[in-house]
């Protein structure tokens, strides 16, 4: 299937002279969840803004669902819903009015049932007649999401949807994103919560200084780059590792009070149970254990510092 979004050598130099994007190429597949990661100022928002028509690209072309975003902007933009990074809302409007406005703006005839469903899904139905300025930050973000979904877009951009959102709401949002994906919506999100990308995204793209330095399936990325480690606090300090355990990726800490076991995060049954049993056989008792994910976060830090890129 052809990609639903195709970004072709797109660059952006702002009026200030700052080159925020350098010849980015990216294809987004229909129906996937794509997470765009990168440190502040990497160019994530710039890229999204260009695809959505808010910022003009300096170079390159973009097709959305087969439509060029400049020449055939109506068709391209109709397919897209955007939740921008910043909370921009019409303070004096009611929630209901602002949703009707968004739907109209995108050329759709009024559909009260759909709006009601959206508001209920986002736990905003009780607030439908409230002025937006009376809502909390998290509620405003949900209003923005509802606005973006009000015209039933095939593609949803979420630029840092979880910024300033509490844990419960975040989980609610993830569920919603998954439901949307099940119904066929393509989702592109940016986030600084890497666990979010790890759990949600089918593919991950990492940006650094205006360049897309890596695009990879999340699972493959975790497999090739992800490591976990298990730390066992020992009941008694150990002078040295028994020779029988020498073949394992096991290390004794400098203070000799703990053992560190490194393993591949995604190799099934990485053998923790076996390890613990063998420790028992050698009479090594432990009083506490902790696992640490070298998670996407570490991978990410390495990447943007250029160590593995």
């Amino acid at each position: 299937m052809p990609p639903i979004i195709s970004v072709n050598r797109v660059g952006k130099t702002y009026a200030s002279g700052h080159e925020a994007l350098k010849d980015v190429d990216l294809d987004i597949q229909r129906g996937e969840i794509f997470a765009l990661l990168g440190p502040n100022g990497a160019g994530k928002t710039t890229l999204i803004s260009i695809v959505c028509g808010i910022v003009k690209a300096s170079r390159g072309t973009i097709r959305v669902d087969g439509h060029d975003i400049v020449r055939d902007y109506r068709a391209a933009r109709s397919a897209i819903g955007l939740v921008p990074q910043e909370l921009h809302t019409d303070a004096f409007e009611t929630v209901m009015a602002t949703l009707k406005f968004s739907r109209g703006l995108f050329g759709k005839r009024p559909d009260p049932a759909l709006i009601e469903r959206l508001l209920r899904d986002l736990a905003l139905w009780d607030k439908r007649d409230a002025k937006i300025m009376t809502l909390s930050g998290g509620m405003k973000r949900r209003v923005m999401i509802a606005k973006a979904l009000s015209h039933e877009p095939a593609i949803l951009f979420l630029d840092e949807p979880s910024a300033g959102v509490d844990v419960e709401l975040r989980h609610g949002m993830w569920q919603m994103v998954r439901r949307l994906r099940e119904s066929g919506t393509t989702i592109i999100l940016t986030t600084h919560y890497i666990e979010e990308a790890e759990q949600m995204a089918d593919r991950i793209g990492v940006m650094r200084k205006g360049e897309l330095i890596l695009v990879e399936e999340t699972r493959a990325l975790m497999r090739t780059l992800g490591k976990r480690q298990l730390t066992l606090s020992l009941a008694q300090p150990l002078d040295e590792l028994p020779a029988a355990l020498a073949g394992l990726p096991l290390a004794l800490s400098d203070d000799r009070r703990s053992l560190v076991y490194r393993f591949d995060a995604h190799a099934d049954g990485a053998g923790i149970a076996g390890l613990l049993a063998r420790l028992g056989e050698h009479g090594i008792a432990w009083k506490d254990l902790a696992t640490e994910e070298s998670s996407l976060e570490d991978i990410f830090v390495d990447l943007v510092h250029g160590e593995r890129a």
Partner: peptide, 12 residues
């Protein structure tokens, strides 16, 4: 206010 993003991203 920044709300113009919506007009700019709409098929208008």
């Amino acid at each position: 206010a920044g709300t113009i993003y919506e007009l700019l991203s709409a098929p208008v």
